[in-house]
Amino acid sequence: MNMLEVSGLTKHYPINAGILRREVGRVRAAEDVNFTISKGETLALVGESGCGKTTVARCILRALKPTSGSIRFSPADGEMVDLAPLSKRQLRPLRRHIQLIFQDPYASLNPRMMVGDIIAEPLLVNGVASAERHRRVLELLDLVGLPAAARTRFPHAFSGGQRQRIGIARALALNPRVIVADEPVSALDVSVQAQIINLLLDLQEQLGLSTLFVAHDLGVVRHVSDRVAVMYVGRIVEVAPTVALYATPRHPYTQALMSAVPKADPLMRDTAAAPIGEVADPANPPPGCAFNPRCPFAIDRCRTERPVLRDVGAGQLAACHRAEELTLAGVG
């Protein structure tokens, strides 16, 4: 059963210039993005900065209004609502079902509120009675591995990892049906990052969460996700089950991304050359496949015709003209 069905999701930002603020161009932050997340599944959205992964996440949370496309979400089993056209007021009763885990554990907690109040706020604004709120806050603190005494302390008394736990507790307070995690561990130290990844794994297991996991770190993604969608300049270029994607990438960009990750093994140095060039400008993407200027396998067709995301076998989808003929190196 699908919890979230995103189809044709597009977000453009107009570029205005001149005294009349005339539109002179558009940043195509997200272009025709399609994916689904089923119940209990974690889909990772990966890519480099500016690829549109955060834009997609913010559209799903409806912190942004998409330019076009639909975001169908299931607020209760057997029901589907399209979030894309809804107004702020229509969205309010639905917000409780989709919650966000922030990247920055420092900015995301109000420093002037006690931890107990921070975690209780979602319950309070959704009309949960005081006694029940208290019980639930203690339950949530325990769930994320913080002592009950944390309730009466202020965020400044906590380390980055502990703050991230508080943020997770707040996100879980209303038993959301979908969690959006926006780079939840990238601001943390390596040793603390591992703690939070393990906590997320525990929670996935215990609560059967459906998660959209936005990240740039392929190592982290490998540990937490069931499926991975790779984005490049606003479009999804490959979607595949995690193991398959890492073992047999079908898009040259996926391969480039993986080979660029420095391997924590001094005996495996420089196995692949770094991809050439830089990420294309989403305001002015190259014609054809956006990756063609950097792609070692590009042919004339790649420079003129944009490849569509299609099934290339074994449940893998890739947007590459040459997906079938290329043999790309994966890891593990």
Partner: peptide
């Protein structure tokens, strides 16, 4: 995973100090 990190809460008065006090 979880319990270990939470156990070591800062145990001073500062931790419970509100904005005015800080």
């Amino acid at each position: 995973s979880s319990a270990s990190s939470g156990a070591s809460l800062a145990d001073d008065k500062l931790a419970q100090a509100g904005q005015l006090r800080l």
